[in-house]
Structure formats: structure tokens, C-alpha cells
Computed example of a mutant assay.
Amino acid sequence: MHPLITARELAALLDGGRTARLLDVRWRLDRPDGRSEYLEAHLPGAVYVDLDHELASHGRPEDGRHPLPTRDALESAARRWGLRAGDTVVAYDDAGGLAAARAWWLLSRAGVADVRVLDGGLSAWTREGLPLEEGDVVPQSGDIVLHDATEGIADIDDAAAWPGRGVLLDVRAAERYRGQVEPLDPIAGHIPGAVNLPISALLSDGLLRSPDELRAAFEAAGATQNTPVAAYCGSGITAAHAALAGVVAGIDVTVYPGSWSQWSNSPGRPVATGAEPGDLSA
């Protein structure tokens, strides 16, 4: 199943009478709670998803800022959203798919067969002149059964060893990778051996680039179909978007959910700075 759906494709699907569960995953670092914007205007029938509390758990600083939710917690949230077995699920946001990709990544690994991201999100929908509605949507509780998500996930030790056998992508902005700034975590820099591929390089006007363009961007960073590839970001949100782009490009991307927020809060983990990957033996 292709992980993206365009606004026109989604509108045609809904007009054709097919049921789709729409998830509004509006979240940004500077505005983590998008509920007020959701209540003002959202796709008809869309349910608000609280990324911080439904697509993540919370623990100690050394767990990172957005640890994965347990299976039970994710299943409970998915049932609140009205999900049932066999549903087509479409997640969207207003930030180029960066938050919606987290929902796609988690649900697809937990056993939801048909889950997609609306390419371009809310902006793409409104550009097509398609309708919005206001207020809250409270669907009938679903009965979806999820399984533990285990595939395509790296832990902190996997991330440390990954550059020795493949390519570890740091998809944060270049200045954070280089260690010039760090607005959120206690230490600036990157995991030794990681290669920088800013997530912005995979987007154009809020849309994912074409498969050929995505493939070229990955390959420029050394990530190919024949190379083990993993990605991390600040706290595991944007890295899921890199995995989404990887599917479109035909490249399997494992995600390190703890990302820099976990690494930088774990005593004894080495840190590299500057524009180069850094010393693997550090």
C-alpha cells in the first residue's frame, strides 16, 4: 500500500462512499497542542490526535522526549479514534506531514494494513477548495486490535553501532547537527558517524519530493537500497517522516525513536560536532 494520498485522491475516495478514518495530528515544537486549531477547522469527520499523549509516552529524561507508547496505550487511543479492523486510515497535519508520519509509522508497525499520510496536509486540502468543518468529532469507539511494534525500530545501542555497518542519518537542521545550536536538549552535536540529511531536503512546498528526487537525496548521503539505513532526529518525530520518505523512494529506513533527546541525556555517550560525521571510535 502506497503511504501517501493526495487531497484529490482522498476527496474522490470519500465521494465514492468509502469510509476513511481521518486523524488530525497537528503538532509542532513551538505549538505541541493543536487542539484549538483543530476545533476551528478540520477535514470533515477528522478526529484530533494528541501526539504528546497518544503517540508517545513519558518517562525519565534518559528515555527521550517522545518514547514510544505501549501497545495497550496505542490501542486504547486508536479505539478512541474509532478505528476498526480493515479501516482505511489517513493522517494529516499542517506541517508538511512531519507529525502525521509519526501516526503512520506507529500504526503501520502495529498492524494497521491501510494507513496513509495526506501529502501536503491541511494546506493541500484547502488549496483544492475542499470543505472543512469546525467543532469536535467524537466517533463511536472502535474495536481495533493492535500488536507490539517491533520491526524497523532501533534502540540506543543499535544507533551507536549503526555507522559501522550502514548509514545513520541525522535528519535535524544542519546547525543542530554541527552542534552550533541546541534549543531543546542538554548537549549540542550529533552521534559519532551519523550523516546529516535535513528533513527539509525531502520536502518541496510542504509536499514530499518525487521518488527520484528522494532517492537522489538519500543516495547523496550514502543511503541506498542495498545499505542498512537508520534515522534519528530530536525526539523521534521527524525521523518517522524520513522513514515515510524512504518508503516512497524504495529505501528501508529504521527509526531510532529515542533520537538525540535520549542520546544527549544518557551519560557516557560520545558526541561529535562539526560538519563531518565524526570519529566512530570516540
Rank of each mutant, 00 (worst) to 15 (best):
G142K: 07
E133K: 05
D119I: 00
G120Q: 14
L106C: 10
P139T: 02
D136V: 14
V145F: 01
D143H: 12
V112F: 00
V137F: 06
L106G: 07
D119V: 05
G135P: 04
G120F: 02
D119C: 02
E133G: 07
D143C: 09
T126L: 12
V145W: 02
G135T: 03
L106D: 10
G120S: 10
L132Q: 10
T126P: 11
V138A: 15
W105M: 06
G129K: 08
V145S: 10
A113T: 07
A110V: 02
R116T: 08
G129V: 04
T126N: 09
D119Q: 04
W125A: 01
L146N: 08
L122E: 04
W125P: 00
L107P: 13
P139W: 06
D136H: 14
D143M: 02
A124S: 15
W125F: 04
E134F: 11
L146W: 08
S123P: 07
G120E: 05
G142A: 12
L146E: 07
W125H: 08
P131D: 13
P139C: 02
P139S: 04
L107A: 06
G135R: 12
V115Y: 02
P139I: 02
T126G: 09
W105H: 06
P139A: 06
L107I: 06
S123K: 08
A110F: 01
V112A: 03
R109H: 09
